[in-house]
Design a protein around this nucleic acid. Structure first.
Lengths: 361, 361
DNA sequence: GTGAAAGCGCTAACAA
DNA sequence: TTGTTAGCGCTTTCAC
């Protein structure tokens, strides 16, 4: 029995078995096109994939039929058959972060150029959600994963599953098994702290990120490196925790400004917290930079629009995304990786929020 | 010939035909699990999909086999077969926008609850990219589309393609054919303008969004409504164009402040532009709100952290995303829609950037 | 250069 | 309750 008999009316597939048994209407498929063009399905497939292997006349016939049928290849079938989705998963701790937005933009660009698509997943930094989305690879919904946080969603080895292509960018796992793209956070924090020390600051407050973040660990280390190199004892009271939000910066500043021996400069581990801190400083009736210098990290667009404009550390955010995609695609396509651990350059963006320390008393 | 002969060693599928002919290793499939459990593939499928239709003992055997094989259903095959991807495409003009970030977050939440996934697409507001991503639906890569901009990516009717489920949120198409979730932008702008008029302002500058945006059209209309109701003639010189960026706000403010008859209040159609304008106002040595009142739109997190805190219009951003997803899923699953056009409430967030007009001279 | 046919992994009739 | 079987739409040998 021939499996499918396609009628010749204007709405061919509507009355096909598929349409009868499945809820959705199949409006045209490769068989329909083949019939219209008077060729085999194989020829249609070839015309679409490698036209050079088909006679020009045949090609024209097929293309006309494609047009006539309004044919769109069912990518679900294509991918199923060819075991390749063209999807890249990006795990973002939070989309509501201007820095990540730039990273994603760079990734999107690179993916599009390479013929891949980006599936963005806002994981809220939750490991369960990260694992779930990373599963998309094992489920054959995506070809690889880019993780922007220091957590390996494939940490628990799924015994006999093929290792999934994954690249770790921005906040990277220490000594991890996966390729990374990172900033030398330690050097950057050191450079910024040196800038403050150079302005005469000795009591420099630090508002950190969450304890668990290696990115924070590195930045703290850089801060301490600089202090040590300048012979300044690190006062633990000057360091407080935050979570990269505006509110955290506000709260952190409140705590540091309440110290009996107030810091003369404040280093926030990201710009959001610096902007939060700025508000608190002003609420206290203090001026930036006259009374207290303030610096951030990331150089988000708002940084330059603060009052005063925020001195911060500029990262090539888009490049993170771009590099991550390029490396991931190499991994997927099993091409050699030039480097497994890329370190991107930073730049101090010196603006108006820092000044020489005021001689008190 | 039996199509597949699975060997019994510890790495069964590695030596299967699939592994030999395709580049990727199939580590286990439903057939392998069925073999391991001593049941048919149908029983495995049932155990996974509707366990209640399988005997508990059988179920246990199958589950054990699933475990043993480290089996993950190939969702590509599942979706291909069942003609449903569980993916929702969200077209975002730009991810680097704090307002959209909140919308997306709400959408993500709702999608996850309903068992759908979100594919985020940063379209940069480009129609070609929007069309391309919207095509994912016709390609069977996604079940539906949420568009956050006033452009119909399916505008050109693809003759015999089934109409794709699409919901239009945030910036909606006038008289469009698709379900919408929007704010009453006109009423919101009117309310804000009335607030300014109530403070005694008569010359109120307006920094608009791009000409093409209906959202802008509505907000301008609301602004004019309020002026008219108060008997104030609308001076076209007080209206200038922007594109929702910090820079645009800065430039717009520069233009308006250079007028011989300077406005006493500035209404920016989003907070980013208001923050840009704020910077320009201060650069000019003017004070907000003493010399000039300033208001924005959206209530992004940074708004409350400005100096002074920005008076703005709060939108329930997350609800846009949530509602859009709920409506889209109803569309996809062909359930009835309670309303085709949802209008969400706004709220004036009155902060420190507005004050009664100063009596000049 | 083209066609016939096998089959990707899974689901869902239908039969037993 | 379970098994058998026919495909989903497409790609890809392998003949011709």
């Amino acid at each position: 029995m021939p499996p499918v008999s396609i009628s010749a009316d204007s709405h061919p597939a509507v009355s096909s078995p598929a349409a009868r048994f499945e809820s959705e209407v199949i409006l045209s498929n490769i068989r329909e096109v083949a019939r219209l063009a008077g060729v085999s399905v194989a020829t249609v497939s070839r015309t679409l994939k490698s036209p050079e292997r088909v006679l020009p006349e045949t090609r024209d016939k097929v293309n006309a039929a494609v047009e006539q049928a309004g044919y769109r290849p069912n990518l679900m079938a294509v991918q199923f058959r060819s075991r390749r989705t063209g999807n890249l998963v990006i795990l973002v701790p939070t989309i509501a972060n201007t820095f990540f937005a730039r990273v994603i933009s760079g990734a999107q660009q690179a993916a599009q150029t390479a013929g891949y698509r980006v599936l963005l997943c806002d994981t809220q930094g939750r490991e369960d959600i990260e694992r779930e989305f990373a599963e998309l690879v094992h489920n054959h919904q995506a070809d690889g994963v880019i993780q922007l946080r220091a957590f390996d969603p494939f940490a628990e080895p799924c015994h006999n599953l093929e290792p999934a292509p994954i690249v770790n960018a921005c906040e990277v796992i220490q000594g991890g098994r996966h390729p990374t793209i990172s900033l030398d956070n330690r050097a950057a924090a050191k450079a910024m702290t040196e800038h403050l020390i150079g302005l005469g600051h000795r009591r420099i407050g630090l508002i950190k990120g969450p304890k668990s973040s290696p990115l924070t660990r590195d930045r703290v280390a850089g801060y301490q490196d600089a202090l040590q190199a300048a012979g300044i004892t690190c006062d633990p009271a000057l360091i407080c925790h935050g979570d990269f939000t505006l509110q955290a910066g506000h709260d952190g500043a409140a705590a540091l400004l309440a110290l009996s021996e107030r810091p003369t400069a404040l280093f926030c581990e990201n710009d959001e917290m610096a902007i939060g801190a700025l508000k608190r400083i002003k609420e206290q009736g203090l001026r930036v930079p006259e009374d207290i210098s303030l610096v951030g990290f990331d150089d988000i667009p708002f940084a330059a629009y603060c009052d005063p404009p925020l001195t911060t550390i500029a990262q090539p955010a888009e490049v993170f995304g771009q590099k991550a995609v390029e490396m991931l695609i190499a991994l997927i396509e099993k091409k050699p990786l030039a480097e497994r651990h890329v370190v991107l350059p930073f730049e101090l963006a010196l603006r108006g929020s820092t000044a020489a320390v005021k001689h008190e008393k």
